[in-house]
Design a protein around this nucleic acid. Structure first.
Length: 572
DNA sequence: TGCTGCGCACAAT
DNA sequence: ATTGTGCGCAGCA
């Protein structure tokens, strides 16, 4: 049928070069043919030209140089787009799906390294989910990963074992190599026979082997690309081992290197752009490399970098091991917002503060002041509108009741005054759904909670009594049932007793944590007793501090008052 | 030294 | 926005 002797070899060469991301130019094609098949350069060139004439190979100019393309592959995507193929949607991987598959494969690889038995018994779904979420907890949630896992099972990319554990199935590129089917046959057949039921025992074993090979390769033991289709099936070419997929290593300086490219390979417009950049005296490589990767202790789950930015630091999720840069958490996304006490819950751990369910149970709306999350139905009054990303929303506790005006709050801390500022629960006052913090912080946008850690004045004879007196216990929220708690459990001996502190003692205490703000304690002449009487509104409203530091300071005040460091005390 | 894999930036779609 | 391309670096034999 074909008088082009080396047609297949040439196509193979082009494919191979493309896979290597090398330009399939005449030089490389000839090199390949010479090396692999001992075809001399002249014959190769002659046949290549014939292939071009027959439009088996396309000769194209790309980025200023000549390349050759496999015509069949060049148009394969167009054929697919025409919809003439009965490919099941699932097998035509979309980009997000490919990303998930990559994460999944990597998860298998890592888990198998830690637990080789998984090769036999399969990997528990939970382990997979945990691993994947540790890599990308922004795009994925536990539930979403579970769904994707099931989908992978349906399309055969994953095998669910009888024990419920998972093994990797084959990629579509792997199957035809060993089974002799092409992927369309496979996918169609698979579709017809309903997922994994199709896999007969033997087929399934082979499949699993293939899939798990993929995982092993991911570990660094090789690369599927080292397997080349040949007339007799798989043929190992070369013994080069693929580098292990780089998993975030905090100690690593894994910043991408900027690679230059010859001007000749660029478009006119690109060259112009580059020249413009040069004229600006700024080039990306420099700006990129200006990051130094000294950050210790983890990789940001948001930006996925372990970059180090001055004044930036990583905070860990209160519940899990996820970490993120402070700067990454203060953006538009409220789900990533830090709590005012500088702690953080990642989107997966973030729970509704009423029902304690995560976002799995429904969309969570985040208060832009206290960062508490609420399901629409859990918040009273019900959250009617879905708050747009970036929009500011205040929970019921942080909305400012009309009665509470700055002027009403006496700037001096006095035990008698402090407790007159009880906020009245009055639904009428909770009007504005979207006050901005900026506007609000000058007033009294205090996270006032339905059950604030009320310190009753009668219990203020001393810190210990403040922490342990029956009155205090009773004023805590019912759910805490502090009554039953042992006093020793309540008091943290590491937290000092501030009862008899002088103003200077108070000042010195806060100086170590808040060097810029501590002076207000001196200015306001707050001694230990006053400190123990302070309420949230006093710290936030009367000390004339910025909201951020004020909330952090409030945490310390509560710590000292209760001699406990329990977030429930200051945010419930 | 040459082959290979692949991150990344750029071009094409 | 997504997909295709290939430069140039690094690992390896």
């Amino acid at each position: 049928m074909c008088d082009i002797k080396y047609r297949d070899r040439i196509l193979e060469a082009i494919d191979q070069l493309r896979r290597r991301k090398a330009r399939p130019d005449i030089q490389r094609i000839c090199n390949f043919l010479m090396r692999r098949h001992s075809i001399n350069s002249n014959d190769a060139k002659a046949d290549l030209q014939k292939c071009v004439d027959r439009e088996i190979v396309l000769k194209v100019e790309y980025k200023g140089s000549i390349s050759y393309r496999n015509a069949a592959k060049k148009f394969s995507h167009l054929k697919r787009a025409e919809g003439s193929e009965n490919l099941p949607a699932a097998i035509t991987y979309s980009k997000p799906n490919r990303k998930f598959v990559a994460l999944l494969t990597n998860a298998f690889a890592e888990l198998i390294v830690h637990e080789p038995d998984y090769l036999e018994v399969g990997v528990p779904g939970l382990e997979l989910i945990r691993n994947i979420l540790s890599k990308d907890n922004v795009r994925y949630t536990k539930k979403y990963v579970s769904i994707l896992l099931e989908k992978e099972v349906e399309i055969g990319g994953l095998i669910k074992m009888e024990n419920g554990n998972y093994l990797l199935g084959p990629t579509k590129s792997e199957l035809p190599l060993e089974t002799g089917k092409n992927d369309r046959d496979f996918s169609r057949e698979k579709d017809e026979k309903d997922g994994q039921k199709f896999f007969m025992k033997k087929e399934r074993k082979k499949t699993v082997k293939l899939g798990m090979k993929r995982a092993k390769m991911e570990i660094g033991g090789g690369d599927e690309r080292d397997y080349k289709p040949g007339e007799n099936g798989m043929l190992r070419v070369g013994r080069r081992r693929k580098r292990a997929k780089k998993v975030f290593d905090p100690s690593d300086n894994n910043l991408p290197k900027k690679r230059g490219r010859p001007v000749g390979s660029l478009n006119k417009s690109t060259i112009e752009k580059q020249l413009a950049k040069l004229n600006d005296g700024e080039s990306r490589p420099e700006s990129r490399s200006s990051f130094t990767s000294r950050e210790q202790g983890g990789v940001c789950s948001v930006c996925h970098n372990n970059r180090k930015v001055p004044n930036d630091r990583l905070v860990a999720c209160r519940e899990c091991s996820n970490k993120a840069h402070v700067s990454c958490l203060n953006g538009e996304d409220m789900m990533l917002k830090m709590y005012p006490d500088n702690t953080w819950q990642c989107p997966h751990c973030k729970t509704c503060c009423i029902c304690f369910e995560t976002s799995d149970a429904g969309y969570l709306t985040i208060c832009s002041v206290c960062a508490d999350a609420y399901h629409a139905d859990c918040h009273k009054p019900r959250i009617v509108e879905k708050i747009k990303s970036g929009a500011k929303w205040l929970c019921i506790n942080c909305q400012m009741p009309e009665q509470l005006q700055v002027a009403e709050i006496h700037p001096n801390v006095s035990s008698s005054d402090v407790f007159t500022h009880r906020l009245i629960d009055d639904d009428k006052n909770y009007g504005s759904p979207a006050l901005s913090i900026e506007e609000d912080s000058n007033h009294n946008s205090l996270p006032l909670s339905p059950t604030p850690p009320t310190l009753s004045p009668q219990g203020m004879s001393g810190v210990r009594s403040a922490a342990a007196s029956p009155e205090i216990k009773c004023s805590l929220s019912d759910s805490q049932s502090v009554k039953e708690m042992d006093i020793d459990d309540i008091i943290d001996p590491l937290i000092p007793d501030a009862t008899h502190w002088t103003c200077d003692d108070v000042y010195n205490y806060f100086l170590q944590y808040f060097p810029d703000e501590a002076k207000v304690f001196k200015e306001q002449e707050i001694d230990g007793r006053s400190l123990l009487l302070m309420k949230r509104m006093d710290v936030i409203g009367s000390l004339k501090l910025k909201l951020g530091p004020a909330l952090k300071i409030y945490r310390h005040v509560v710590k000292l008052q209760f001699r406990r460091d329990d977030p429930k005390l200051y945010w419930l």
